[in-house]
Simulated scan of single mutants.
Amino acid sequence: MKKIFLVALFIVGAFTSQAQELKWYTDVKEAITISNKENKPMLLFFTGSDWCGWCIRLQNEVLKTPEFTKWASDNVILVELDYPRRTPQAPELKSQNNELQQAFGIQGFPTIYFTSAEAKDGKVNFKGLGQTGYVAGGPSAWLAVADGIVHPKKS
Rank of each mutant, 00 (worst) to 15 (best):
M1V: 04
M1N: 08
K2C: 03
I4S: 12
F5K: 12
F5T: 07
F10R: 00
I11D: 00
I11S: 01
A14N: 01
A14E: 00
F15K: 01
S17C: 13
A19F: 02
Q20R: 11
Q20G: 02
Q20E: 12
Q20F: 12
L22M: 11
W24R: 08
Y25Q: 02
Y25F: 14
T26Y: 08
T26N: 10
D27P: 01
D27M: 00
V28L: 13
K29I: 00
A31L: 07
A31K: 04
I32S: 01
T33P: 00
I34S: 05
I34D: 06
I34W: 01
K37M: 04
E38W: 00
E38K: 06
E38F: 00
E38P: 00
N39K: 13
N39S: 10
K40L: 11
P41S: 06
P41V: 05
M42H: 04
M42Y: 06
M42R: 03
L44Y: 08
L44C: 06
G48P: 10
S49T: 05
S49V: 03
S49F: 03
C52N: 10
C55L: 04
C55P: 07
I56P: 02
Q59G: 09
N60P: 03
K64P: 04
T65N: 06
P66C: 11
E67G: 12
F68V: 11
K70S: 12
K70C: 05
K70Y: 05
W71Y: 15
S73K: 15
D74Q: 14
V76E: 09
E80I: 13
P84I: 12
R85E: 14
R85T: 05
R86W: 09
Q89N: 08
A90M: 09
P91W: 08
P91Y: 07
K94G: 06
K94F: 09
N97K: 10
N97S: 15
N98T: 14
N98Q: 15
L100A: 13
L100V: 13
Q101F: 06
Q101H: 10
Q102P: 02
Q102L: 11
Q102I: 09
A103S: 10
A103G: 01
A103N: 03
A103I: 06
G105A: 10
G105R: 07
I106V: 15
G108A: 13
P110G: 05
T111F: 13
Y113H: 06
E118G: 06
A119R: 14
A119W: 01
K120W: 03
D121F: 04
V124P: 02
N125I: 04
F126T: 03
F126L: 07
F126K: 03
G128M: 05
G128K: 08
G128R: 07
T132W: 03
G133V: 09
G133R: 09
Y134H: 08
V135G: 09
A136W: 02
G138S: 13
S140A: 14
A141T: 09
W142Q: 09
V145H: 13
V145G: 14
V145K: 15
D147F: 13
D147A: 07
G148W: 11
H151G: 03
P152F: 04
P152W: 09
K153Y: 02
K153P: 01
S155W: 08
